[in-house]
């Protein structure tokens, strides 16, 4: 029985680290957020294993639910404003920073690529 507990703890700890790593390293932001929500749910499991049911309840409601909803809405707003903000930057000189005007082509491809995949572009 103790051995089973140890195995469970080891698997849970490993999964926590692996999920955190995947969430932070994933090139796609949407995927990163979904993995982070899964991470929050596993954290709730870890609190139960550590005899902290109060913390587990708070984590399940907040860490997995509310934070996830917040992050996903913000991502949706970010995507929406990236389409609009791009047009505004080129239309109104006051709307964006100077770099866009100086290097329009480089910035344009970067922004377009980002919009398609949501990934970071290393140059």
């Amino acid at each position: 029985m103790t051995l089973l507990h140890w195995a469970f703890d080891a698997v849970l700890g490993f999964s926590l680290l692996w999920l955190a790593w995947q969430a932070l390293a994933s090139p796609d932001l949407f995927r990163a957020i979904v993995l982070f929500i899964a991470f929050g749910l596993l954290m709730a499991l870890a609190w139960v294993r550590l005899d902290a049911p109060d913390v587990a309840l708070a984590e399940a409601a907040i860490g997995a639910g509310l934070t996830g909803a917040l992050l996903l809405t913000t991502l949706a707003r970010l995507d929406k404003s990236s389409g609009r903000g791009f047009g505004r930057t080129l239309g109104h000189p006051s709307g964006g920073n100077n770099r866009d005007v100086i290097h329009p082509s480089k910035k344009e491809t970067k922004a377009l690529h980002k919009k398609d995949t949501g990934t970071e572009v290393h140059d």
């Binding site: 969430a23 932001l29 982070f36 954290m43 992050l71």
Partner: peptide, 21 residues
């Protein structure tokens, strides 16, 4: 990317909570 930085800070916070509990 700032959203990734926010995610990273949240993971750090989870780590601190885990140590405390």
């Amino acid at each position: 990317h700032l959203l990734r930085k926010i995610l990273a800070i949240n993971v750090m916070a989870s780590g601190v909570f885990l140590v405390l509990v």
